[in-house]
Structures are given as structure tokens and as C-alpha cells.
Amino acid sequence: MSHFDIERPIVKLPEQQPEQQIPDEELVWTDEEQERIEERKAKYPDPKSAIMDLLWMAQEKYDYLPPEAIRLCADTLDMDYARAYGVATFYTQYYKEEKGKFVLDVCTCFSCQMMGGYDILHYLEEKLGIHKGETTDDGLFTVEEVECLGCCGSAPMMQVTNGPYVHNLTKDKVDALLDDLKDGNMPPFVSVTLPQDEDEMGGNRRSDVEATETYQTPPRSEAVK
């Protein structure tokens, strides 16, 4: 069974007097973005609900969300800064600090943990010489431990930079993934099908792309002892 102790149990206090990272003149929405914001706001009965959209837009714009970016989103929607901050910190997908080029979100929630999620996490930590939450010196990789990403069927798994999932992880697969990423190749999107409809739609359950690699019911993970 996986090692269950919490390695570094200190939950940090966020910087209470943070230095501003983004200069004031960049803390504005372009006209195009304004338009998108209005669109998003119109989607909800309460425009404040668009905070998640806005935070996402800000993250795409600034690469991460320093406090002033969160405040910009809150001010845009006329909502409490604290509330927007609470939303931003709830989701690991919002990056509150600068991350590496590739963020490896390893799931260690129940199913992945049972299937060796911690082994994968610790293997990554050792291989890259960093602890979870840290970034390698070359700025290439950040390793994160995250909660359930909703892909228990192919545990253990990880997500790369809020993008494609990598399923059914083994140490070999991790090695290969790191090599690919170093070459700048993101892993392909793999469509997860249920066994009973692997034949339907050619196994491709995404209608917005022509084809994806299709997840096959895997052999037993090596990580299971």
C-alpha cells in the first residue's frame, strides 16, 4: 500500500502583503476581452457567476493569477475581492503563483491512491529533484498533488498543464512522458470510452475533433503490488 503519511504537512499562509507582479498599465482588459466578458456575464442569472470564466481568461492572459489579477476579475464583476480569492484558491487549476512550462498534476485521491498515485508522485519528485508544489530550476516542470480529476477508471493518472490527461501511469510511462515534454511534445488527447461503446463512433467520443486516441481497458498497473 502507498505510503500514507503526509510528507510536508504545513499549509502555508498566503503572502499577506504581496508585492505587485503585474504593472498597473497591464491590469486592463482589451476591448476584445471586454466583449467576451459581457458575453459570459449574460450567460448567468447573476453576472457574478462569471467569476470562473474571468479567472480563466486572466490566467490565459497573465499565465498565472497573482492577487492583483484576482482583484481585477473581482472588480470587473463588482464582487468582493475575498470571495473571488476564495474561488481562485479552491481550484488547483488556477495557478496562484508562477509555474513551470509543464504542470504535472498527479491525482492522489482515493482511486489513484489505491492504484499507486503516491508512488507516481514520489517517483516524479525524485526524478525531477523537487518536492510537490515546486518547479525545476530550468523552469520546465512543476509537480502538483491534486484531488480527484474524475478519471478513476484509468487510475493512476495525471493531467498536464490543465490539458490532456495521461492515463494508467507506470514509471516507464512517466519517463517517456518527461522525454516527450522536454522535446516540446504534449501528450495526445485520449478519449475515454466505456468498454461497451468502444466500437461506437470509432471510439472517438469527442465531436469537435476528427479523431482522438482511444482509451483501451488497460492491463493491470505495475504499480499494484
Partner: peptide
């Protein structure tokens, strides 16, 4: 946080983070 949201309406407190790591706090710099 409900007090600051609903009663005093200052909105100064929020729950930070999630799961076992969460606790109430103000936004940074506030």
C-alpha cells in the same frame, strides 16, 4: 464568512483553499 457576507456585508473573509487545507482568511493585502 457568512457573517461578513450576509450580516455585516463587508465581504472581507473567505474560505481559502480546499479539503483538509482550508481555513478562513482575508484576501491578500487586505
Amino acid at each position: 464568512t457568512r457573517f461578513t457576507d450576509e450580516i455585516s456585508e463587508s465581504g472581507q473573509l473567505t474560505i481559502n483553499n480546499r479539503g483538509v487545507r482550508n481555513y478562513p482568511i482575508t484576501a491578500p493585502g487586505e
